[in-house]
Simulated scan of single mutants.
Amino acid sequence: MENGNALNRYARLAGMAWLVVILTGITAEFFLRMPLIVAGDAAATASNILGAEGAFRLSIVADIIMLLFDVTAAVALYLLFRPVNQLLALLATAFRLVMGAVLAANLTALTSLLSVLHGTDSAAPSIVQQLLDAHASGYAIGLVFFGLHCFILGALILKSRYLPRLLGIMLMIASLGYLIDSFAHLLLPQGSALLAMMAQTLIALALLAEVSLSLWLLVKGVRA
Rank of each mutant, 00 (worst) to 15 (best):
A101T: 03
S112R: 15
L117P: 02
V102P: 07
L67P: 10
T120W: 02
M66W: 08
A44P: 02
A76V: 02
L97D: 03
N85V: 00
S47I: 00
D121G: 11
V102N: 04
A101E: 04
I22A: 00
V61D: 04
S115W: 08
V61S: 08
L113G: 02
V21C: 08
R12A: 01
T111H: 05
R12W: 02
T93A: 15
V98I: 12
D121V: 04
A42H: 07
G25L: 10
L32T: 02
F95N: 14
T93Y: 14
S122H: 12
R96W: 06
L23D: 05
L68I: 14
L36K: 06
A52L: 03
G25Y: 14
S59C: 06
R82L: 07
V116T: 09
A42L: 07
I26H: 05
A44C: 06
L88I: 05
Q86W: 01
S122V: 14
A76H: 06
A104L: 15
N48I: 00
D70V: 08
T27D: 03
I60C: 14
G51I: 07
V71S: 14
V61R: 09
L91S: 12
S59V: 03
L67W: 11
L103F: 05
S47N: 02
A43K: 15
W18H: 11
Q86Y: 01
I22V: 05
M99V: 00
F95M: 15
L80E: 07
L77S: 06
T108G: 09
V102G: 10
L79I: 00
F31T: 00
T108W: 15
I26G: 08
W18Q: 11
D41R: 05
V98L: 13
Y78S: 00
A43D: 14
I65W: 11
G51F: 08
I22N: 00
S47L: 04
A124S: 11
R57H: 10
V102T: 12
L79P: 05
E53I: 00
M16T: 07
I60A: 13
V98T: 03
S59M: 03
T27Y: 08
L97A: 12
A28K: 12
G25T: 00
R12Y: 08
D41W: 10
